[in-house]
């Protein structure tokens, strides 16, 4: 389980989980689950397109998530945000269908990009992965306060000259970067689970924003480690464990919040 190849995979998965947890904190408090689902999913045809053109996969994924950001933010200004997200997503997937009809890509590779299988990560992949992870985390931390305020109330943000529209675009850029980090390693659908599950548990465990962000990253990393170990032991797909653990995380968070509120009202009544 811990030979060289596996060590690389563990490192890569940990990086991915950390990024997903940090970015996911804002995905959850901004209520942007759909965008976080759509960006990775619509970026995955980018990998196919890159193979078709003959450039690095990462470039294709970055380009397609860039299109996704542009589509969601531009169309979102003209109408409902969820409609904008859905239509940008299907347009990019449609392009994916176009590219796939041109390639002889193995279904197995497509399946892995979609449903996630921690793919073999070579030592040479680690450096760009680490760099990109550092950039996404640094950007999220740099934008921490304006992002937080505009998530609580766009109007309050605008009052102190933080444009909610600019923050929305920057937030989508951060999600796109996280996507580019994670997609080649764990697949589109897994990234998404890692973004929403751990963060939704973290937000109920603490009432401090910065602590919430770090707890989210920690839960995300533990989720990935546990999933890899369980998947290794049972030979079942890792996607199943990540999905199930994320759902458990969400339910545990809701239950914890409920218990807390019950306890609080009991305490108030007893006084």
């Amino acid at each position: 389980m811990f030979d060289d190849f596996m060590v690389n995979t563990w490192i890569a998965a940990t990086l991915v989980a950390g990024v997903a947890g940090v970015v996911g904190f804002f995905v959850v408090i901004r209520g942007a689950s759909f965008a976080a689902h759509a960006l990775p999913l619509s970026a995955f045809p980018g990998a196919a397109a890159a193979n078709l053109v003959g450039v690095d996969q990462l470039i294709g994924v970055l380009a397609f998530s860039g299109f996704g950001v542009a589509g969601i933010s531009q169309l979102g200004r003209r109408g409902r945000r969820d409609v904008a997200t859905a239509l940008s997503l299907v347009m990019l997937l449609g392009l994916g269908a176009l590219f796939l009809s041109r390639t002889t890509e193995y279904f197995q590779a497509i399946y892995a990009l979609l449903f996630g299988e921690v793919l073999g990560v070579g030592a040479q992949d680690l450096a760009p992965l680490a760099a990109l992870s550092a950039v996404s985390i640094a950007l999220t931390l740099a934008l921490f306060r304006p992002l937080l305020l505009s998530s609580v109330s766009p109007e309050l943000a605008e009052t102190i000259s933080v444009s909610p529209r600019v923050m929305e675009v920057l937030f989508l850029v951060v999600v796109a970067l996280a996507t580019a980090v994670a997609l080649p390693v764990v697949g589109a659908l897994l990234v998404f689970s890692l973004m929403v599950g751990p963060a939704s548990a973290a937000r109920t465990l603490t009432s401090r924003p910065l602590a919430g962000l770090f707890i989210s990253a920690a839960i995300s990393i533990v989720t990935v480690w546990a999933s890899i170990a369980l998947s290794f032991a049972s030979d079942w797909p890792i996607g199943f464990f990540v999905g199930a653990l994320s759902a458990l995380g969400y339910l545990a968070g809701r239950t914890w919040a409920w218990v807390e509120i019950q306890g609080l009202s009991q305490f108030r009544r007893s006084r």
Binding site: H37, F192, G197, V242, S246
Partner: peptide, 8 residues
């Protein structure tokens, strides 16, 4: 989203 992740 959570249900989707679990379902997939």
């Amino acid at each position: 989203g959570i249900v989707t992740g679990a379902g997939l």
